[in-house]
Design a protein around this nucleic acid. Structure first.
Lengths: 138, 138
DNA sequence: ATATAAATGAAAAAGCTTCTCATTTACACC
DNA sequence: GGTGTAAATGAGAAGCTTTTTCATTTATAT
């Protein structure tokens, strides 16, 4: 019952918020841009403005319901937060996004921040490449 | 003699290109946005259009003279290419950028790409945090 | 010297995201 | 169940960085 999650975050339970949550939960895409969500809403017959989609996604990010990935050079994509920290591999041909977890890297990052006297607040790691599928297609 | 570098890259030797190169070489800032470069040019009395600055920086990137960092959420910054691959630490308070090299991470990245069947073309790693100086200032 | 392909400047356009503001809605309280 | 109020929404405008367009200028090969 995701109404609870919204209330917990201090957000009123509104149709746009419920529908955006529904899209994120039911879409085939694990990673969606605001535009993707907006279009999915239209397809489902919900006339929710793009500005609202942006607002809602940003609020969800603040509430810890989704995380935002800032892809190289441009637009953001959002994914439902599942508690697991992970990094991303991106296919430069088809834009497929895969996820991975690597404890060695996590640990090295903490060590490097410490060495440099940084109090680490966040980090982002993207590996760009050509995915298995696109290598064949070429 | 950087005219040579330009010629080698198949670029005509023009005033805007020489001046942008000069700015990058002489600025206190190792990391500059297009806007930064543009302003520095104005201060030095060169009236070079912002569009040209963008074009020149992009060409320099193509020629391997500079690399482009795509900072979280927005604009790009450029640094003179010195041949050494490195990643970056960014202070979220003062925007200071520090660099580091970590072979363990490099190796793990290659391993992960291989595991996932990706032909790695590039990667980007940013560690965000509060730098030593800003921790004191608070 | 000159022809020509490339480079430049200025302004417009593009692409993503945020803001403004008038209108609507959720929800606490009676 | 009403109803007041703060929050949310929609639509369009605006913001920001970056790219494009196109007429004009310039570097360079011959």
């Amino acid at each position: 019952m995701e109404s609870q999650d919204l209330r917990k975050a201090g957000l009123k339970v509104t149709l746009p918020r419920l529908k955006v949550l529904e899209i994120l939960e039911t879409s085939d895409l694990r990673h969606m841009s605001a535009e993707d969500v907006y279009k999915a809403l239209l397809e489902m017959g919900e006339e929710i403005g793009l500005a609202t989609v942006y607002r809602v996604l940003t609020q969800f990010e603040g509430a810890g319901l989704v995380s935002r990935l800032s892809i190289d050079g441009g637009h953001a994509v959002f994914e439902l937060e599942d508690g697991s920290h992970h990094d991303h591999l991106l296919c430069v041909r088809c834009n497929r996004i895969e996820e991975f977890i690597d404890d060695v890297i996590e640990q090295r990052q903490r060590a490097i921040a410490a060495e440099k006297g940084f109090e680490m607040t966040d980090h982002s790691l993207y590996i760009y490449g050509i995915c298995r599928h696109c290598q064949k297609t070429k």
